[in-house]
Design a protein around this nucleic acid. Sequence first.
DNA 1: TCTGGGGTCCTAGGACCC
DNA 2: TCTGGGGTCCTAGGACCC
Length: 423
Amino acid sequence: MTRMFALVDCNAFFVSCERVFQPHLEKKPVIVLSSNDGCAISRSNEAKALGIFMGAPLCKIKDIVIKHNVYTFSPNFSLYADMSARVMETLKVFSQQLEVYSIDEAFLDLSSIPRHELMAYGSHIKKVIKKWTGIPVSVGIGPTKTLAKVANHLAKKHPTGCYTLITPEKTATILKDFPLQDVWGVGAQWSKKLSSLGMSSALDLAQKDTRWVGKAFNVILSRTALELRGVSCLNLEELISPKKSMISSRSFGTPIYSFEDLREAVSYHVSSLAQKLRQQGSKTSLITVSLRTNPFDRKGSFYSNTLLVPLSFPVSDTSVLIKAAASALEILFREGLSYKKVGVTVLNLSPETQRPSFLFNEMNFETSPKRESLLKAVDQLNDKHGKGSLIFASEGLIKSWKSKSSWKSPSFTQNWSQLMRVG
DNA sequence: TCTGGGGTCCTAGGACCC
DNA sequence: TCTGGGGTCCTAGGACCC
């Protein structure tokens, strides 16, 4: 039996989340900005119609925003995460086999639904999600994940918000006019190269010999070519696999000059990563610190550098990681520069249950039960009273390095005092 | 005023070993 | 003149995704 996948994608997700709690924003141009109020990362249809592009820097669209009274929000990621969880929970009603692909997208296995009912089933999903969560979605259905993605593109423009690509004939007709750069897995670089080789539509790639594609590009793109042809190569990944790396980084609201401020910012990132490591039940044995000045600043010379610090054993202890990161920062820091961003990455993650046999005394500090229960208590307090309730001293209290966030909506789903009031 | 943040996978090439 | 060949592991870099 051929398989059948649906891709359910939330429309302008962050904007839609804001609208659920502020219904007066319906039909109005709305945008949500990136961290630091940098650029537009989610746009309502009305905002798109005004010519606001994905990733447009706020400073460059300021005139449009003022002239057309575009409602502008700083990002409220915990709100979006909560709304995402509601959408995903609701989706489970329609298929037990579900892959949460990103914060606003999920693949569903619909192989068991009769072919002639798929269109109606897709429309039904859309209606129920809207009714139960307030979020509008588009549904694309096809025999492979890549074709479901293509169908979803078309669904966004279709009045029903649902589109199916079931027969090979219809699929070929659609792919003939479907630009290659819009295919899932084909980015800017490859579409440029493909175009120079004479391919411009998705059908061109689908009809190419896959071995040739594999040689000229790689196995990923040859898989994409097969999927476009209707051969399913990518399975539904229902299990959420543990992360193999984690990043915490942020641009500063205003440039930072002092080592002390940088160290506080780095400590903050490390602390947040360490907590996420413990949440996932992982430890890291490689931490990297990177910092850079503003790459867009024409005056000063650009400085960007990263340092890897291998740890002698896997850890998730905040203090141990802060020490390692601070020593890296000392090496990276150059006096007199105006820094714009720091970031910390933890790699080589391993399950915390997988412990190496101990040879050295230094292990004792990290693994002592007292130490572990202390960190557990810190995590529990922060869970209960909100992130940042209890922090490590090195994170600092002033946070002069924090990001800009001028127009953040209230914590509608997180904080009792900020719940919506009715009547 | 000034351009996000967080991930994954694949490949080539070097180091090292026998 | 000749100076192996094959395997594994690791890393950096490049591509992609949201």
